[in-house]
């Protein structure tokens, strides 16, 4: 295996485009190293992105959003006051990935590119309306996060392409987001169900909403029907019931070692209700 440390995304893309065998990009490494260890992946070329300038930085964008470098570990997201104030749901999704130790390495970009339907940080990004900047041999392009995963373990990135930043839109006023996941233990598990809600209020009424679910379909899923169930409501009992129903209806999960179809479908509704209430409280200024 050859180990590369390019200093620009263009060089990284070139290396990947020219590589003949199996290539992996290395940011936090918390998925790649596990796959290498298990013998699932034996890369011929490993391209470490951490020597590229700016990859460990979180910067405010001109439009009032955020640009998050591909090697920013979870621990740095949680320590960033501005980001936590704007997108607590995105941050808490990332912070649920693994242990304190994993948080020292794991990144949003890696979690997204691993392509798992259960990736904890992805529903929050999708609900937030985040996009990614992709650098490839032909330059850069921006793509909504929900378009990146295409099936378990597969992404829409083409050969030689890599994500060069994650972009969060401006949060704006009277808005909040939240992510909840269900795991059998309290920590250290892969989500059995994940649900993220981002919404904006006018008074007590929801004016905008995005709902995304994880681990209930082959990819993390944006669920417009769930958002519609609460837009125009005050999240009263009836709206919450409709929200839960819409979330459950959007599920097409599998039975596996982590959960059953019936359980995932049911709990998707439960979590979405709970996440919506947290998002609402945050929109009203609750910082918890």
């Amino acid at each position: 295996m050859r180990y590369h440390t390019p200093t620009t995304f263009e060089d990284a893309a070139q290396l990947a485009a020219q590589a003949k065998g199996l290539t992996r990009f290395l940011a936090g490494g918390t998925d790649v190293l596990v796959q290498m260890r298990a013998g699932m992946v034996q890369p011929d070329d490993l391209i470490d992105l951490k020597k590229i300038a700016g990859v460990a930085e979180i910067t405010a964008t001109d439009d009032g959003g955020w640009r998050i470098g591909v090697a920013v570990p979870g621990i740095a997201l949680g320590a960033h006051e501005g980001l936590c104030a704007d997108w607590p749901g995105v941050v808490e999704g990332m912070e649920l990935v693994g242990s304190t130790q994993i948080q020292g390495r794991a990144t949003l970009t890696g979690n997204l590119c691993n392509g798992s339907p259960a990736a904890d940080s992805v529903p929050g990004l999708v609900a937030a309306g985040a996009s990614v900047e992709i650098t490839g041999p032909d330059g850069t392009r921006n793509v909504p996060v929900e378009e990146i995963p295409v099936s378990p373990g597969k992404t829409a990135l083409k050969a030689g392409e890599l994500i060069s930043a994650i972009l969060l839109p401006p949060r704006g006023q009277n808005a909040g987001d939240a992510y909840l996941r269900f795991i059998p233990r309290t920590e250290m598990d892969i989500a059995v169900v994940g649900s993220a809600v981002s919404l904006r209020l006018d008074g007590d009424t929801v004016t905008e909403a995005r709902v995304a679910l994880g681990a209930v379909a082959p990819t993390v899923k944006l669920v417009p029907e769930a958002a519609e169930a609460i837009i125009g409501t005050t999240l009263d009992e009836a709206a919450l019931e409709a929200l839960a129903k819409a979330a459950s209806a959007a599920c097409s999960p599998i039975d596996d070692k982590r959960g059953t179809v019936a359980f995932r479908t049911e709990v998707a509704g439960v979590l979405t209700k709970r996440a919506a209430l947290i998002a609402k409280a945050r929109a009203k200024g609750d910082t918890a």
Partner: peptide, 16 residues
């Protein structure tokens, strides 16, 4: 065997 790692062979962690 489908859960041959500690991620899915779920022994109690401190917070449990």
């Amino acid at each position: 065997l489908q859960n041959s790692v500690f991620l899915d062979y779920r022994v109690p962690v401190a917070s449990d």
